Amino acid sequence: MKAQTIARELALLALPQLSKAQKKLAQSQPRELQLTLEEMMLKAISTLREETQEALEAATAELQRSNDRLLNSQTRASDVEGARVMTAEAIELVQTAINRLGQALEMPETINNFNRPDVRSYALELLVKATEETAQVDLLLSKSIVDWQLGRLPKIDRDILRLAVTEIVYLGLEERIAINEAIELAKRYSDDQGRKLINGVLRRVTEQLKSGV
């Protein structure tokens, strides 16, 4: 997994804590700011560990339920159709469990790469810029949201958008890559509606930037 991808996820997980520490961050010296942001990233790592454990526990429960469905299809189904339905439910539960296990297996890579200098450096740079330029980023996003308000979006969708715009405007990330990376985060942390919204808003942001509005 690329350093920026790992750093971006860490920044996303640390970003919700920024609002709680906004005043402290504004008054911090550069070294203090870095230490505070690193502390937030450590909390983000802790969150990832908890999510990994929860994903594994959920996958275990789903596999057990799948096993129960298969047993019931053999012993309790009154006809072929009933057995078919129970088997289909069992297969669906197994697929869900596999998806959860896939997510859980990705998380340790993010956790283990936290101490990579390139990961820490980019995550800190992204968090610092997202903090410093929140007002300008939010202004740009507000102009790009149709029939809705930025403040009414789910927090996770808002944070994904803020990070993507920060990378495009202030860190020089190519627009196409920023949008794709934001969508990948949305697939993992948001839902289908959030993913579509993020895609649409960021495309309108890029149109604004190109037109100079």
Results as ranks from 00 to 15, higher is better:
Thr75Arg: 14
Ser28Thr: 04
Thr87Gly: 00
Lys23Asp: 15
Gln64Met: 11
Glu62Met: 13
Gln17Tyr: 11
Asp157Gly: 06
Gly102Met: 12
Ala135His: 13
Glu54Asn: 11
Ala77Leu: 12
Gln34Trp: 00
Gln74Glu: 09
Asp147Cys: 06
Asn113Thr: 04
Leu15Val: 01
Leu10Pro: 00
Thr87Asn: 09
Lys196His: 10
Leu127Ala: 08
Met107Glu: 07
Glu39Val: 07
Leu42Tyr: 00
Val146Ser: 07
Asn99Leu: 11
Lys155Tyr: 01
Arg204Asp: 01
Ile177Ser: 15
Met41Pro: 01
Pro117Ala: 05
Leu18Asp: 04
Ala164Ile: 01
Ile179Lys: 02
Leu63Ser: 09
Gln136Lys: 11
Glu175His: 10
Leu42Ile: 13
Asn67Phe: 13
Leu93Phe: 05
Leu42Phe: 02
Lys155Glu: 11
Glu57Ser: 05
Arg152Ile: 10
Arg195Lys: 15
Leu37Val: 07
Val85Met: 11
Gly172Thr: 04
Glu175Gln: 12
Asn112His: 10
Leu70Gln: 12
Thr134Gly: 09
Ala59Thr: 06
Asn99Ala: 11
Glu32Val: 09
Met107Asn: 08
Met107Tyr: 10
Thr206Met: 10
Leu140Ile: 12
Glu54Met: 13
Asn67Cys: 11
Gly82Tyr: 00
Lys187His: 10
Gln29Ala: 13
Val94Gly: 00
Ala123Ser: 08
Lys187Asp: 13
Glu109Asp: 13
Glu32Met: 07
Ala61His: 04
Arg100Ile: 09
Ile145Arg: 06
Gln208His: 13
Asp147Arg: 09
Thr5Glu: 10
Thr5Leu: 07
Leu139Gln: 12
